[in-house]
Amino acid sequence: MTILLAACAAGLFAVGTYLVLQRKLSRIIVGLGLLTHGANLLLIGSGRRGNPPIIGFSDVGSFSDPLPQALALTAIVISFAVTTLLLALAYRSWMLTQDDEVEDDIGDRDVARASVLEEEIHDQETAMTDGVLDPAP
């Protein structure tokens, strides 16, 4: 059972990591959701399994460990809230840009602009030298 849970968590982590690395915001959010599910499964898997931990219901020695379940519940609530916020942000981003692709950051844009500029200068230079070296027939 623990191995099954661990395998599920591993699968969720793999798919989540793949999705988080995409450029579409919607996929990133789904990816994060899957990642948090993986973490929560792992949390549930970290405790001992057994009968419901209610005194009088079964033998105390066969109780399951209730603490990881409580922890997982808290973690689920928190990730739920943050995912909602993320969705609101993504919606806002879509309203502003009409696209759900993650934009380049300022540094990336500067580098891209600089390289385009360099290319243009390079093109001009080659054009000029070509002009000098190959006189019109």
Binding site: V20, L25, I28, L32, L35, T36, G38, A39, N40, L42, L43, G45, S46, P68, L71, A75, I78, S79, V82, L85, L86, L89, A90, S93, V102, D105
Partner: peptide, 19 residues
């Protein structure tokens, strides 16, 4: 967006290490 995604990823890693 970047900040939230990175922080959420770190939190997920935190829950994983807690588990």
């Amino acid at each position: 967006m970047t900040y939230v995604v990175i922080s959420l990823l770190a939190s997920t890693l935190f829950v994983t290490s807690l588990a």
